[in-house]
Design a protein around this nucleic acid. Structure first.
Lengths: 134, 134
DNA sequence: ATATAACCTACGGATAAAGTAGGAAATAAA
DNA sequence: TTTATTTCCTACTTTATCCGTAGGTTATAT
């Protein structure tokens, strides 16, 4: 399964916001430095998430972005479907003979991305960090 | 889930070969007409399947293509991974924090496409034709 | 007033999708 | 042996998306 940088960046950005969710907005610059991602490119990614209402932006000094919900209230599917063209809706339902196949693949993917939350990712990340620090 | 034309054509081509598997090779021209796909484009698709050893080609008059195995011996994953860039191997395993997520998506997709066979597609297709003919 | 941020649009190279086009090589049949 | 058929191969177009760069505009906290 090929996942684009855009999709990966979007998830990392949301994860970063979740990890620094202390009331103050988090600037793109900080995220870009921490995640080692071009800030300019991140701008375009976060713009998609902003328009989708997944984050809230605050302009001006000390501004930045914040999550609008709690991490456990974000399914990663919401993030990926906004940013990863593979996971976008197929649109033209052309009643193909293999429709059942495409639907099964859809269902399989959805069963993962519409179940796993941002909080799950945080948990896994920390478990992993713990394992490596032994 | 967005599936490309190339991937869909590849499946339809293999299905067509399975349906006309009577010992004689099936020409691309016939398939192109039946499936209403540009023959020239089909050439390029079938070339991938040929190089992967999924079909056997016979040149010259009365030539064409044949399946090398029985329909139940083809997983659709074999076909799709050759033709659908979404399903290709990701290559660079960059030990991302969300690796667990990508692996789960991978597993979910594989559990479908490495299980469903060409024969399954034929069956579903016929069931569907039956339902519509009532 | 100023510096800090988000916001917006456009541009660039690279890659892939979805074809189109033209010919070369093999081969069965006349 | 010639001919028609069919696969095979390479190159080209057009459109779109990825990944990133660049430059400027607007809002706002200090």
């Amino acid at each position: 399964m090929k996942i684009s940088m855009k999709g990966k960046y979007a998830v990392r950005l949301m994860l970063d916001l979740a990890e620094h969710d202390f009331g103050e907005p988090v600037s793109l610059k900080d995220i870009a430095v921490r995640q080692e991602i071009s800030e300019k490119y991140l701008e375009q990614v976060v713009s998609l998430l902003n328009k989708a209402g997944l984050v809230r932006s605050i302009r001006g000094p000390q501004g930045g972005y914040r999550l609008v919900r709690k991490p456990y209230d974000y399914k990663v599917g919401e993030i990926l479907r906004m940013t990863e063209s593979c996971f976008a809706k197929d649109g033209d339902g052309e009643e193909d003979a293999s429709m059942i196949l495409w639907n099964r693949i859809d269902d399989a993917v959805s069963s993962v991305i519409d179940t796993v939350t941002l909080e799950d990712l945080l948990t896994w990340q920390n478990e992993n960090a713990y394992n490596y620090s032994i």
